[in-house]
Design a protein around this nucleic acid. Structure first.
Length: 283
DNA sequence: CACTTGACCTGTCCGC
DNA sequence: TGCGGACAGGTCAAGT
């Protein structure tokens, strides 16, 4: 689930609350979710929280980094002394932590606790040397960050045409083309660009590459603005949901009316994954 | 080489 | 109420 906007929501929240704290203890409830040597990060101060594509990183003062990939159902929830921030616990979050999806627990120096939960266990926590982070196979092969200046429509075009006979929506899910887009935002990007997600890359005009570029940036910015998309599992670091799906144009809206033209939103499968679009708005 | 499918896991929902 | 199958935000390996 967590795509760029969801991971960025967590990054922003965590960076306000844990920088300067030390990791006091690490508890591995599901050891297979944790890769590397946990002793490297104990009693070390947190210097920085960052995101690259869908990967979250926590840099420590001693030159080691903790990497997280949330895959489909991963969560990072920080519980301070005022449990649940005094507000109403949100849905899944009203159970006590740790719960049965909790894989790794970090106890921090101000008595707060960071829980890594992951129902399906696809996600992972990994301890690596900071200077070797960019050598990680997953990170090494990533395409450009879609919200940074070096991501131009020409770069998008150049990277996309390697997949000339693939549907556009499938091609933008390739993390080496552009990083951070997942299945929710891929449909939204195509809607914003007014492009049929089934259209082949080789059939796109330059004008369509430009609008796809803008559509990608808008979808991700809107996702961040609304605190991410919560279907079932996404909660931010405070255990609160995100609201992007209340504003999404097509994702999870099969049979509902297009917010722009009123046509009924369609669903199809592309490369085995649910794909939503408006037949009238997207050509 | 390009592209699709299956595997990794757990849980939920729907039809019979 | 139970059971089988499809499906769910991601990525990688194996197959065609």
């Amino acid at each position: 689930m967590p795509e760029l906007p969801e991971v960025d929501t967590i990054r922003l929240g965590l960076s306000k609350k844990i920088i300067g704290l030390k990791i006091k203890t690490v508890k591995l409830l599901t050891p297979t979710s944790f890769l590397g040597d946990s002793s490297k990060i104990v009693n070390k101060k947190i210097q920085q929280v960052w995101r690259r594509a869908k990967v979250l990183g926590i840099n420590l003062e001693n030159g080691w980094t903790v990497l997280f990939h949330l895959k489909m159902t991963g969560q990072l929830i920080l519980i301070g002394k005022s449990k649940f921030m005094g507000g109403h616990p949100t849905l899944d979050m009203d159970s006590e932590l740790p719960n049965k999806s909790t894989r790794v627990v970090f106890y921090l120096s101000d008595k707060s606790t960071l829980y890594f939960n992951d129902q399906r266990r696809f996600g992972w926590v990994k301890v690596v040397e900071t200077e070797l982070v960019s050598n990680q196979s997953l990170i090494k092969s990533l395409g450009p960050e879609p919200l940074e200046k070096n991501f131009t429509w020409q770069v998008l075009k150049q990277n996309l045409i390697r997949h000339k006979s693939q549907p556009v929506k499938v091609a933008i899910l390739d993390q080496t083309v552009v990083s951070g887009i997942g299945n929710i935002y891929a449909s939204e990007c195509c809607f914003n660009a007014k492009i049929d997600p089934r259209k082949k890359v080789k059939d796109l005009t330059d004008s369509e590459f430009r609008s796809l570029h803008r559509g990608i940036q808008k979808a991700l910015q809107d996702g961040i603005k609304h605190g991410g998309s919560s279907m079932t599992h996404f909660f931010n670091e405070e255990g609160k949901r995100g609201y992007f799906l209340d504003y999404a144009f097509v994702y999870w809206r099969e049979g509902e009316k297009c917010r722009v033209c009123g046509q009924i939103i369609q669903k199809t499968q592309l490369a085995g994954r649910g794909t939503y679009f408006c037949l009238k708005c997207q050509k």
